[in-house]
């Protein structure tokens, strides 16, 4: 038995200039927020952007960007990712109706392979991939199936988060995979803890995004999101890293 999907994945991604996987070893650090706002910001700069939500257990980029999911994407020799706020968007939420799914590892891999094989992204400047936390099937499939992917790693100032983030960094370094750098999200105070650890591994510390309690109020509204201090900090980080 041969899995035919693997041979077309490269073809589907061939007209994409930059593929960026937003990853973290730990959950709750703001990966989906960084992915969504990165895509939103790049689209607002007239870049051709795609956003692929691979957090199959808890997709949330559609919530952040206020994307409706009640209609199946159109078909034309594959699946055409619908465009919202200038972003070509794909997520399992279009098919799951935002209901829970009890997926085991093999099922997660099948979802990823299927989505990559049938989604017709066309030409893009950037494809942003929102990964779930950890070094599980999703991260490993991205490493194995999507090359070259650059990793943008997100942490918080927490020592607990960094404990897990360090493991992801170490694995990516061991595999000689490109790391754009580490973003320190939800920054409170002026601790250098994250910066010190990251730079000690010869990985770029890209900067911090301040903790913004009011960010929650902008969720679901793309124009409000573009006016938050979060996006200002993210812009500063993008300028020196992308």
């Amino acid at each position: 038995m041969v899995d035919p999907r693997l041979s077309v994945i490269k073809k589907r991604l061939k007209d994409i200039n930059n593929i960026i996987a937003v990853a973290s070893g730990k959950g709750g650090v703001g990966k989906s927020m960084v992915s969504s706002l990165l895509a939103l910001h790049l689209a607002s700069q007239d870049k051709k952007v795609g956003l692929l939500d691979l957090d199959v257990y808890g997709p949330s980029t559609h919530i952040i960007l206020g994307i409706p999911f009640q209609k199946f994407p159109e078909e034309d020799r594959g699946i055409i990712p619908p465009v919202f706020h200038g972003i070509k968007f794909m997520s399992i939420v279009f098919y799951s109706e935002d209901k829970p799914g009890a997926f085991r590892g093999i099922d997660v891999s099948n979802i990823i392979r299927e989505l990559l094989a049938i989604t017709q992204w066309g030409s893009l400047d950037y494809l942003i991939i929102d990964l779930p936390p950890g070094i599980g099937d999703e991260t490993l499939d991205v490493i194995n199936l999507i090359q070259p992917t650059e990793f943008l790693i997100v942490s918080t100032p927490s020592k607990v988060a960094m404990g897990a983030v360090e493991k992801l960094i170490d694995l990516l370094l061991e595999l000689h995979l490109p790391i754009i750098g580490v973003v320190e999200n939800m920054k409170i105070g002026d601790s250098n803890y994250v910066k010190q650890i990251v730079t000690s591994k010869d990985v770029r510390y890209l900067g911090s995004i301040q903790f913004v309690p009011a960010l929650e109020e902008a969720i679901g509204d793309s124009s409000k999101l573009l006016k938050t201090p979060f996006i200002k900090d993210l812009e500063r980080i993008i300028k020196k890293s992308l």
Partner: peptide, 14 residues
């Protein structure tokens, strides 16, 4: 039709 994408994957693999 997304059958097309799957058919393409079959021929590419073959």
């Amino acid at each position: 039709m997304h059958e097309w994408a799957l058919a393409e994957s079959i021929i590419t693999t073959a």
